[in-house]
Design a protein around this nucleic acid. Structure first.
Lengths: 220, 220
DNA sequence: GTCTATATCACGATAGAC
DNA sequence: GTCTATCGTGATATAGAC
């Protein structure tokens, strides 16, 4: 259990209507929290977005903080489920191409998730205190190991892995978080498939060559 | 004038007390907006942070939106004043090292500015509508030119400049915006001079090599 | 020029009718 | 299980005393 608050969850048997409404509310909440952050979000806006009467929200979720915690928890589960793999048996170029492509896919597919998380971090993560603990540091340490291995094998340059990981995270999430600035700069209405593909290719190429790994031809 | 709202600014003669108090308020507001965003921020919190009675804020600033607009405007002025140069006469490696170092310096020195701006973009930039206009696109277009020139001269690989610029922006701003996650991952209390220097060196190296430019030795 | 007092309203949350 | 009515709080903003 990542977030303490969520463990106090209402564990009533999930009827079909309940399940449906909870999903409606969670989606609406994700939008609202992405736009206005935890403090700025209002239960009223969430209810309107969900198309439900305001007090219905309080029937399904104890309070604003618990609703927020569930949204955050879902986001973290989503990422954990699909982003844990950087295969040490592959070449760095192949493994990194796959990883960057997955991250970019997430940026395109779940921009709201990324924004809710980003806003929480920007606020100093007061509602993620028990997520960013010693366990998180261990988890991160394990993520760095594959880079150390590759460096020891001479497959990449000896660069502190943490900075490589932060580079990949920031560069990819940027495409969901800073969407407005990007589309404005490029003079396009919306980041489409073409732009994401081109950005993925450019990022892969720069990062892979940048750490001294032999690149492979992109799979298109 | 970047922001329409600011042009309605109270242009009374600036007495010494006024100037001092306005500065106090602007600093306090920057902190509060960085933490809670526009909607989540309260005039009360700003007043407390500034050590002034609540209604004093309204005396110096017309309303919350105008105060916010001034904070944002100051941030943009700050960046514009120091970040417009990517010298085409230098080698790519030298010019990029200088640019990345400056960006990282700003990330370290003015983290609040970066966070206020980031939160505004994440919200869809509803209060920066007249900043992200056609003029912005032109300004960005000019920033890409130096990369196109270098590419034409064979000094860097032919990579769409926009993606290089976004890579630099995201990677550097990450160190102010995601500070909490970074320190937690690295198991340190605070990002100090040493970490910023190491990150700057790692980023410069990866990006410069990544775009196919000859690197130079870091000036330490 | 500065601060106290207060008007007005929107917010989170709950009680209780259906 | 669902919705209406409402309570108490805290928000922005202003009027007016000092």
């Amino acid at each position: 259990m990542l977030l303490d608050i969520v463990s106090h969850r209402n564990d009533k048997p999930a009827g079909r209507i309940r399940q449906h409404n909870e999903q409606l509310i969670l989606s609406a909440a994700e939008e609202e929290f992405a736009k206005n952050g935890f403090k700025g979000a209002t239960m009223n806006n969430i209810a309107e977005r969900a198309g439900l009467p305001k007090s219905n929200i309080h029937y399904y979720f104890k309070n604003k903080l618990q609703l927020y915690a569930e949204v955050l928890s879902n986001i973290i589960d989503l990422w954990d489920g699909a982003l844990n793999e950087l295969d040490a048996n592959e070449t760095p170029a192949t493994a990194l191409r796959a990883y960057i492509a997955t991250k970019m896919h997430f940026a395109q597919e779940y921009p709201l998730a990324s924004r809710v998380f980003a806003k929480e971090i920007l606020s100093g993560a007061p509602r993620l205190n028990d997520y960013f603990n010693d366990e998180y540091q261990d988890w991160f340490e394990r993520k760095t190991e594959v880079f150390r291995l590759w460096a020891a094998q001479g497959k990449i340059d000896p660069i502190e892995p943490a900075y490589i990981i932060f580079l990949i995270w920031s560069a990819t999430q940027h495409y969901s978080d800073f969407d407005v600035q990007i589309t404005s700069a490029m003079g396009i209405k919306k980041l489409g498939k073409a732009e994401f593909a081109a950005a993925t290719e450019a990022l892969s190429r720069v990062i892979i060559r940048g750490i001294g790994a032999e690149d492979v031809v992109a799979v298109t």
